[in-house]
């Protein structure tokens, strides 16, 4: 029972971190209509930034600044936000597809840097010994998991409330206006590009923050955590939840993550060992087909479809 509680807390923390990424994506896509296929890249930038700044000294790479965790998180959002701002600045005055292609490229390059810039990122071995919040109670797994869940819930709630407020503010109204009728918004004297770059940067910053929270939650990061599959999962989460709704983004994340973990556990139990890699690819096929079906039949998602 106690184990189950601890696992429940662990599961919910992981799911809510995805929810945090989905919130960032919802600001970019749901509110502003900007297509980001490089989510994994922005998450990775945040994770690595915070990891390098807060981890203890390591002989073979830059690091050991021993910053406090919160400072690391702040830096993570700022750096990821800056990368997003630059990406947006370079592409948002052009056709919307160019942003998609460029974000895809950002993810490829971030992955490449994570793998190859060994002096900064530890290369394929990643960064270990990232300080975890409440490390002092690590010996009591239940307490530790719940303390961490508390941290994740607090961050998610803070971002959620901030985004709800933002989307109702004049700023959010301009973003919606740009999405619905760009010409009318421009005619009212709003600079489309500037607002879009801002929204894209804030969304990227939230993704970076989520990456940092995840890195500190697990305590270890490696390039393999940030493959295109991550981008894809987050998209599935937002589409299931319903783009445009912050509540939908978080709920979608929990539901899709539950399906993902559940089907993973099921295949691990049912499928013999040598076929498990194959079963795992089938899992991704299923999510891909699901994403397409949602686009076809229920583009508003399943939760909180608000008009």
């Amino acid at each position: 029972m106690i184990d189950l509680l601890g696992y429940g807390a662990f599961f919910l923390s992981t799911a809510l971190i995805f929810g945090l990424i989905a919130l960032g994506l919802n600001l970019q896509w749901g509110l502003t209509g900007l297509f980001n296929v490089g989510i994994a890249g922005f998450v990775a930038v945040g994770a690595y930034t915070s990891a390098v700044l807060t981890s203890p000294d390591a002989a073979d790479r830059v690091g050991g600044f021993d910053w406090p965790i919160l400072a690391g998180w702040l830096a993570a959002s700022l750096v990821a936000g800056a990368v997003a701002a630059f990406t947006g600045y370079a592409t948002l005055r052009l056709k919307s597809d160019y942003l998609a292609i460029t974000t895809f490229g950002v993810a490829v390059v971030v992955q490449l840097v994570a793998l190859n810039a060994q002096g900064l990122t530890g290369g394929p071995f990643g960064v270990a010994f990232i300080p975890r919040p409440f490390a002092s109670v690590q010996s009591d797994p239940v307490l530790f998991n719940f303390a961490n869940l508390g941290v994740v819930v607090a961050v998610t709630l803070a971002v959620y409330l901030a985004l709800e407020r933002l989307s109702r503010s004049p700023w959010g109204r301009v973003l919606r206006a740009l999405r619905e009728d760009e010409r009318a918004a421009i005619a009212l004297g709003k600079s489309a590009q500037s607002y879009r770059v801002q929204a894209f940067a804030v969304g990227g910053g939230i993704m970076g923050l989520a990456g940092a929270v995840q890195a500190h939650f697990i305590g270890f990061i490696a390039p393999d955590n940030y493959l295109p599959t991550l981008t894809f999962e987050v998209w599935a989460m937002l589409m299931v939840g319903g783009s445009g709704s912050n509540r939908g983004a978080v709920l979608g994340a929990v539901v899709v993550w539950a399906i993902w973990v559940g089907s993973g556990a099921l295949t691990a139990a049912v499928v013999p060992g040598d076929l498990q890699a194959r079963a795992a690819s089938l899992q991704i096929v299923a999510i891909g087909v699901m994403l397409c079906l949602i686009l076809l039949w229920r583009p508003q998602g399943f939760f909180g479809a608000r008009k």
């Binding site: 297509f35 690819s281 899992q283 087909v289």
Partner: peptide, 17 residues
């Protein structure tokens, strides 16, 4: 148009896997 791009992204993931 951008929904079609997203669909192609989903299809790509499914086809590859």
């Amino acid at each position: 148009a951008i929904i079609v791009v997203m669909a192609s992204f989903g299809a790509s993931m499914a086809l590859r896997s």
